[in-house]
Each structure stands twice: as C-alpha cells, then as structure tokens.
Design a protein around this nucleic acid. Structure first.
Ligand code: FES
Ligand code: FES
Lengths: 172, 172
DNA sequence: TCAATAAAAGATATAAAGGTCTTAATATCT
DNA sequence: AGATATTAAGACCTTTATATCTTTTATTGA
C-alpha cells in the first residue's frame, strides 16, 4: 500500500481526505438487537427460574450490552409478550414459569428480526420461490430449514438450565 | 393504534414529528453487496462458458441490480481475483474456464462479507469459543458448519450450468 | 400524598451499509 | 494520434442499524 489511506480498525478505513471508503460488512445470522435480545431473555429466564426479577441494570451488566439500547429491545420483547415488564420499585423483567417451558428461540428471533432469515432468498431475489429458484435455492433451503427447525424446537428452559449449571455463558 | 405514527413502508415508520422510530431489521444470511456479487459472478461465469465477456450494463440488466453499486462490488471481486476485468471497447468481465471449474462459492462470500458468518458466535460474543460457549453454541455451530461446508463445496461450474439449462434464475 | 424507583416513550445522535455521481485510466479502432 | 468504449477510483449522498439522552408513566412504600 503506497497511498495514504488510514486503517482505523478492522471495519473503518479512511482515505487521505478522511472519507470512509470500504470495509467488509461483518454479516451475522441475527442482528445485534436480536443477539442482545436473546441474551437478555435467557438471563431473565434464568432469574425467573430462581423466582427473581431482572432489572435493566442487572441485565446489561450480566450480558455486557449497552443499557439504553437494551431497554429499547426489551420494550419490543415486552410488546411481543416474550417477557413481562413491571414498573416501580422492585420492578424489572420476568417470564412466567410455564412460558419458560414452552417458549422457543424462534419467538424471540421473530419478535426482533422477523422471519426473513428463514424465509428469504439467499441471493436476495424478491422472495424464495421453488418454481423459479435461484441457483443456490436447493442447497440454501436445506440449511435454512435446519436453522428454522433448530429455532422452533429449542426451548428457553433448556438454554436457561445450561446457564444455571455453568455450562454456558452470556458474556466473556 | 390511537397515536399519530405513520407507516411509510414495511421498514420505515415515522412518528407524528416525522422521526424514524423503529422497524424490524430485515436480517439476511449475506449482505446485499454479497448477494449482488454472487449473482454477478454467476452471470459472468455463464457468459464465460460461452466464450463471451459480460459488460457492467449487461450484468446489471441480467441480475437486476443498481449499476454503480454493482460496479464497486465487481471492483472488489476483481481485486480478490474472483473475476478478471478488461477495459476498453469489447471489454467487460470474465472468468477463466479452469477457474469456473475450481472456484467455490465460499471464495465470493469471503471476498465480500469475510468469514464472520461461519466463524462468529451466534449470540454476538467476541468470538465463538467451545471452551466457554454461549447457550446456543452447540446447536448453532452444527448449522454454521453445514453452511460452511456447502459454500466450500459448491462449485461455480455447477451453478452456472443450472443457469444455462434454464433450471435456475438470477432475477424474477 | 409524596418521594423514590423503575420501565415506557420520544427525540436525537452516530456508525455502517447501500447507493450515486464525476473524473481518471486504459484499451481498441480508425 | 485522436475518438470512443469500458472499467477504476474517488467523492459524496441516503437509508438503516445501532446507540444515547430526556421526559413521561406506573408502582411502591414511608
Ligand atoms: S429462490 Fe433463492 S433461496 Fe429459494
Ligand atoms: S460461542 Fe456462541 S456460537 Fe460458539
């Protein structure tokens, strides 16, 4: 590289006039909002199993997420009835025991990211359509369906339990 | 809804003061740049199999993508040696026959999106780490590995051939 | 009923992705 | 050599995602 561009970080590249030029888009399966949302929900589930509510402060501390942004996401999850919120002293977020048993990962993902991840075309055609498939359709739908099945079958209880027993973690 | 917010489209929601509030992030497996990049590469491969070059204009027409943006993506792919570009009259983009045989889908994805999609943690922890796994680690890595394998095994030739025979499509 | 606490709602700010436009470089043909 | 065709490079603009800050609403308990 003989020119004067400046690499600020892995993601930020500026040229000599300090204009942003290009960096690989760090694509992810779920949006950050959804990642925080899943982690927050799992923490709340874990606390709820112990008969406790989780406050916003506790949540953001335990999952290492930005507080105000996490609040917004929890609002969404409360509207979607994934979690229940309680205002005032000793308030916070909770999930009913029977919901922890029955709720699936897919409900959280749906509430935040919608279902495009397992319905949309892998190459971005308007919709996935087996009658007029894109070149990756067959290979892609197989993986997408596995993802869909996994999300729809995985219960909150199972994930919250592995957290409780210290087998898995929400931050590092 | 008794308030005055205005739903402009599926993705754009404004409140009474015309401030953007919130909409589900349409998450996708690959970035749009990557989707266009794959589609463009497949079209170029198909033309190359017929001994022809593909011009930017022809590409954007055939894959239905924004011209200037597609040009940027093709620049990236040329730098990554996924495609070869030729300037001047009768110029355009091409892929050597032997590369069409050997090149895998993963090379295109890597050139544009990098490898986070099959290396990163599904819940957004700094890195995926089996020693201190997140709650979805085991279920997630299984799917991610299937995706990785699929991308690494799928050859351009196979996809370009299915296009040529009219079994699959790059736009609709 | 009042102070304190905690979430909801709203406004605004910043960063990244997606996209356009203009000029430069390079190849081809006459 | 000059006109033309085509991609490369750079600057810039727009939209969406991510994030923060401020004000309002609900709940509790002294
Ligand atoms: S049409 Fe592209 S994935 Fe189904
Ligand atoms: S640690 Fe989260 S996917 Fe491996």
């Amino acid at each position: 590289m003989t020119n004067q561009m400046k690499i600020i970080s892995d993601k930020i590249v500026l040229n000599k006039n300090s204009h942003y030029i290009w960096a690989k888009s760090k694509s992810r399966m779920f949006s950050k909002a959804c990642e925080y949302g899943i982690r927050a929900t799992l923490y709340i589930a874990q606390k709820s199993l112990n008969g406790q509510r989780a406050s916003l402060k506790a949540i953001t501390h335990e999952i290492d997420s930005p507080e105000a942004f996490t609040a917004k996401i929890l609002q969404q999850l409360a509207k979607a009835q994934v979690v229940r919120s309680v205002k005032g002293p000793h308030g916070g977020f909770e999930i009913a025991r029977e919901d922890i048993d029955s709720m699936r990962l897919s409900e959280i993902v749906n509430a935040i990211d919608g279902d495009n991840i397992y319905k949309g075309c892998g190459l971005g055609l308007k919709a996935c359509n087996a009658q007029k498939p894109c070149p990756v359709h067959h290979k892609f739908t197989a993986i997408r369906n596995d993802l869909k099945t996994m999300l729809q079958e995985t219960r909150l209880l199972e994930l919250a339990t592995s957290l409780e027993t210290g087998l898995t973690f929400l931050k590092r």
